[in-house]
Nucleic acid binder design. Structure first.
Length: 739
DNA sequence: AGCACGCCGACT
DNA sequence: GTCGGCGTGCTC
């Protein structure tokens, strides 16, 4: 007999709907046995879905007659602790994203279906005692010898996980099989949770480092949440500060979460932590298989893993005794998810720190303007590491004016001469060009035709090696035309520089010098990057050419000259964040130079050598440049002095996005506080992408509350707008780029 | 998202 | 006459 005022569970279901669904407990189950944080199977419409109980024992929000009982509970005790539930709640609210989809991002796949939970085992491989690459059993098997050598590179005395060995490259599993058969390698099955070996020595901290550790942990000892900006120039030893803080957290029985940018989570980094701490460590990143992911997640959630290292999505891992969150390279754009559910892991880390009373440390050589702003206002505590560890001197930066200069494939005589000098002295040179391919444009000199992507309307990049034209926005590919398709008079010619073209022209300049190009095209194969980085360290390549990839975290101790081929892209761009990004990029690239005893030089080619941003950056450093950009932002009312939300719409139909956003603006305007601006709608800076026409409406407010209130009321209306289902539309809170 | 319902054009 | 196209509404 159903009572008139039943108590229900409120469930997040994996659908693009903004609210929770109410259910009666499964037949025969007392609602007291269904706490928030367990999973239930429920009927939704005529489908069966796994949902997450977010509230329990509350009155229903819908008519009693519409309630259906849940089918069954999947867990007996909460899988998600209350802090993580609160985080999911907050996140859905803040980003105005359906809570069921937030839940989907927060849970590893296995938790989204009906699998039972239990700790698994994992495979590891170790080298048999005394085996090396000279072993006679593999004398005629070069690949197997490489694999044995790879074990030696990692650590010949230790067992290694599949994901580490997979970095070796193609065929790693087969090779291991063969080596196991020859009894040169031993396969082991171990309980998953394993204590890292630790044992590495702890280097003495310098004054600035110990100062930072003492001040950050002083706050931690009091168990009071605080956010810290750890601003340290490249090579100043931020990592050592992190390690000491993690150690402090361990001593007080608290877990640590270390968030790193996507390309920052390398096997080397993990090994580094494992060799310092003899405790269980869980790592979470996109490359993990389902089993590894589930084990890492469970060990963190159960409190067994004392250190959790992961990329963006690891921010949602339940960590019950969390005492410390470190966000390394906090300015890095990969902390912001760029499609679908567009959350920012660094910002959530700050919220989570407060929720769980943890210390939050944001580390960077080039902090984001938001973080600097908060440090300036006193909201974040500020710690600086101003000097490089050891005797390394900071690099010299200089501008190379390339106006009216004869450039050779984009290279000035000045840069070429400097390169020659360094190479003759046995040093390495790194050239940075943020454009892969041979040339960004293919152009007919006779009639002016240029190759465009038929789906995005942007110029296609010419890839000489692949012999094709490729669109960098949608990966559309076509053959290279032998004649201009428009006038048929002559073949179209490459225009502008890409990394491939730079490589081939340098080959003619420096005939006998090894040149290595590192970009997404050359490192597509698994493990290729690791292999190249090793070869670079061995000094095989005096000249390195790279894109953005090379700017992040890799240390090349023999690089004494860095050349930035074209700094002007970042000066011309219309995006309001372009200056911030350029300043960060130049300083990060500069950080690759002269890390050991020799001072490095950075040569920046530009047509605007008197640009105030460049002048300030070179003369007074990153902080001064950042303050200058902050001033611009204040004058123009842009973040961090205002708060943005970007409403995007796209459709195969050209008129639809604009039509929808015009209606959207009309229905939002009456709800908006007078100090909220609706800017647009406008055609997006990139009007078409992968065949879809795009428009956007920028919403700017001078108070978070105004922005939030508008969206809270407004988005519900947009759902019901006619045509809302003919466009794909989404909100992006705190957008990092306005494309 | 998925699924049902309902309303209009073009077919055996 | 119906088959099926998509635009709209609903899911506790």
């Amino acid at each position: 007999m159903p009572s008139d005022n039943p108590r229900v569970i409120r469930v997040a279901v994996p659908l693009p709907l903004r609210g929770l669904f109410d259910y009666l407990p499964p037949v025969g189950v007392d609602i007291k046995n269904i706490p928030a944080g367990i999973r239930v199977i429920v009927n939704v419409g005529r489908r069966r879905l796994v949902g997450l109980v977010c509230e329990s024992g509350v009155p229903p929000h819908v008519e009693v007659r519409r309630l259906r009982p849940a089918l069954r509970c999947l867990d007996t005790r909460p899988l998600i602790d209350r802090h993580t539930l609160a985080l999911i709640h907050f996140t859905a609210n803040y980003y105005h994203h359906p809570i069921g989809e937030v839940m989907v991002s927060a849970l590893p796949r296995f938790l989204r279906d009906q699998t039972e939970i239990g700790i698994a085992h994992r495979e590891q491989w170790r080298l048999a005692v005394g085996v090396d690459a000279l072993h006679q059993a593999i004398a005629r098997a070069p690949r197997q010898r490489d694999m044995v050598a790879y074990f030696h590179d990692l650590d010949p005395h230790r067992a290694h996980d599949a994901h580490v060995l997979a970095e070796f490259g193609r065929g790693w599993r087969t090779l291991l099989g063969e080596l196991v058969k020859k009894e040169l390698v031993i396969r082991e099955k171990r309980p998953w949770l394993e204590v890292a070996p630790g044992g590495d020595t702890w280097p003495e901290l310098n004054a600035a480092q110990s100062h930072a550790v003492a001040h950050i942990w002083q706050a931690g000892a009091a168990d009071r949440y605080a956010v810290h900006l750890l601003e340290g120039v490249t090579g100043s030893g931020k990592t050592e500060v992190y390690l000491h803080l993690v150690d402090k957290a361990l001593q007080t029985g608290r877990q640590s979460l270390v968030l790193v940018p996507e390309i920052g989570l390398t096997p080397q980094l993990i090994t580094h932590f494992r060799n310092r701490f003899a405790v269980p460590i869980a790592t979470m990143h996109s490359g993990l298989g389902d089993v590894d992911r589930r084990n890492a997640w469970l060990s963190a959630a159960s409190g067994q893993a004392l250190i959790v290292i992961g990329t963006r999505s690891a921010i949602f891992t339940p960590i019950p005794r969390l005492g410390l969150i470190i966000v390394d390279e906090e300015h890095d754009a990969s902390f912001k998810q760029q499609e679908g559910f567009r959350y920012h892991a660094r910002d959530l880390a700050v919220w989570r720190g407060r929720e769980q009373n943890a210390q939050v440390v944001l580390g960077s050589a080039t902090p984001s303007l938001e973080t600097i702003h908060h440090a300036n206002s006193g909201r974040y505590k500020h710690h600086r590491l101003n000097y490089r560890v050891g005797k390394a001197k900071p690099p010299r930066l200089r501008l190379v004016d390339v106006r009216h200069k004869q450039l050779d494939s984009g290279l000035s005589g000045t840069l070429l001469a400097a390169m020659g000098d360094e190479i003759r002295q046995g040093q390495q040179v790194l050239l940075f060009l943020n454009r892969r391919g041979y040339s960004p444009v293919l152009f007919c000199h006779n009639c002016g035709w240029l190759a465009r992507c038929p789906r995005c309307d942007v110029p296609m990049t010419y890839h000489a090696q692949a012999g094709c034209l490729r669109c960098h926005h949608c990966d559309f590919e076509t053959a290279l035309p032998s004649q201009c398709p428009e006038c048929s008079q002559e073949p179209p010619k490459p225009l502008g520089q890409g990394t491939e073209r730079l490589e081939s022209s340098l080959q003619s300049h420096f005939a006998d010098v090894g040149i290595l190009r590192i970009d997404r095209d050359t490192t597509r194969r698994r493990g290729a990057l690791i292999k190249y980085l090793g070869a670079v360290r061995d000094g095989q390549y005096p000249i390195l050419i790279g894109t953005q990839m090379l700017t992040k975290g890799h240390h090349f101790s023999n690089v004494t000259l860095v050349g930035v081929i074209d700094a002007d892209q970042g000066l011309y761009s219309a995006d309001y964040r372009a200056h911030e990004r350029l300043a960060q990029l130049l300083i990060q690239v500069a950080g690759r130079a002269g890390r050991e005893s020799r001072q490095g030089t950075v040569m920046i080619q530009t047509c605007q050598p008197e640009h105030p941003l460049l002048i300030t950056l070179l003369r007074d450093g990153y902080r001064a440049a950042a303050e200058m950009i902050l001033k611009e932002r204040r004058d123009t009312g842009m973040p961090p002095y205002s708060y943005l939300a970007l409403l995007r719409a796209e459709s195969l139909n050209e008129a639809m996005p604009m039509r929808f956003l015009t209606l959207a603006a009309e229905s939002l305007r009456p709800l908006a506080h007078p100090q909220v601006d609706l800017l647009g709608p406008v055609i997006a800076p990139m009007p078409r992408r992968a065949g879809r026409y795009r428009s956007q409406l920028l919403i700017r407010a001078f108070s978070r509350e105004h922005l939030h209130n508008l969206l809270k009321q407004g988005l519900a209306r947009l759902d019901k707008l006619p045509g809302a289902r003919q466009v794909r539309w989404s909100v992006d809170i705190d957008p990092v780029d306005l494309y």
